[in-house]
């Protein structure tokens, strides 16, 4: 295996385009495990941490956020203004792994690893986050929900690399939240995850996005669940409709971590609870 540490994403993409089996390395908390298991046998390892800006969290001119691909979960968790804007995004990422894993694991890696149970991805999708992708022909931006293609797969073309995570401006009256179900309190993979982001203005929910994890081959954006909230006050009737929509959209498998029936039911429960927290945050109340 050859180890590369390029100083630009264009160079990283060029190395990847010329390589056979390659992996990009940011936090490495999935890549190294897969190498050890023999699932991944890269001939070229392209470390992105030498590229300027990959460790930065920066406010964009529009008032959103640009998060570098090597920013670990622990750093996100300590960033007060990012957390104030997007608490659901940060709390999702902070659920990934242990303290040690939080010191390395990144949003970009969690996304590109392609797990349907990735804890940070529902929050990013609910937030309408985008990623900047660099390839041989330049950069493009795509919505986070358009990145996963199935377990372990993304829609990125060979040689393309995620070069930043982009969160939109939060704006007034916004709130988001992520909840997952696991049978213990720490160090586990989501049986179901759910993120809700919404905006509350003049007594009504005016915008909402709902995303479900671990109930389909990719993290799902569920517009019908969002529709159950929009135009309502987030009351019991709306939350019941949200739950029903989330359960209806979930198409999970049964495995050792939970049955399909259980996962569908939990999707409804988590959607209701996450929406309640997101709404409280939007109203500036304790969640």
């Amino acid at each position: 295996m050859r180890y590369h540490k390029p100083d630009s994403f264009v160079e990283a993409s060029r190395i990847a385009s010329a390589a056979g089996r390659y992996r990009f390395l940011a936090g490495g908390t999935d890549v190294l495990v897969q190498m050890r298991a023999g699932i991944s046998t890269p001939e070229d390892m392209i470390d992105l941490k030498g590229i300027p800006g990959v460790g930065d969290i920066a406010r964009t001119p529009e008032g959103g956020w640009r998060i570098g691909v090597a920013v670990p979960g622990a750093v996100l968790g300590r960033h007060a203004s990012l957390k104030a804007d997007w608490p659901g995004v940060v709390e999702g990422m902070n659920l990934v792994g242990s303290t040690q894993v939080q010191g390395r694991a990144t949003l970009a890696g969690n996304l590109c690893n392609g797990s349907p149970a990735a804890d940070s991805v529902p929050g990013l999708i609910a937030a309408c986050a985008r990623v900047e992708v660099t390839g041989s022909t330049g950069t493009r931006e795509i919505l986070v929900e358009d990145v996963p293609a199935g377990p372990g797969r993304t829609t990125l073309a060979p040689g393309e690399v995620v070069s930043a995570i982009l969160l939109p401006p939060r704006g007034a009256g916004g709130g988001d939240a992520y909840l997952r179900f696991i049978p213990r309190t720490e160090m586990d993979i989501a049986v179901v995850g759910c993120a809700v982001s919404l905006r509350f203005a003049d007594g009504v929910i005016t915008e909402a996005r709902v995303a479900l994890g671990a109930v389909a081959p990719t993290v799902l954006l569920v517009p019908e669940a969002a529709a159950a909230l929009i135009g309502t006050q987030g009351d019991g009737v709306a939350l019941a409709a949200l739950s029903a929509a989330a359960m209806g959209a979930a198409r999970p498998i049964s495995d050792r971590r939970g049955t399909a029936e259980f996962r569908k039911e939990i999707a409804g429960v988590l959607a209701r609870r996450a929406a309640t927290i997101a709404l409280a945050r939007a109203r500036g109340e304790p969640a």
């Binding site: 180890y3 390395l25 936090g27 490495g28 908390t29 190294l32 495990v33 050890r36 390892m45 470390d47 941490k49 670990p72 622990a74 242990s98 303290t99 040690q100 894993v101 010191g103 390395r104």
Partner: peptide, 13 residues
């Protein structure tokens, strides 16, 4: 200064 698992870091890093 960051707590990590040494098994999840490449030596070259």
């Amino acid at each position: 200064g960051t707590l990590l698992c040494a098994c999840l870091v490449l030596g070259v890093e």
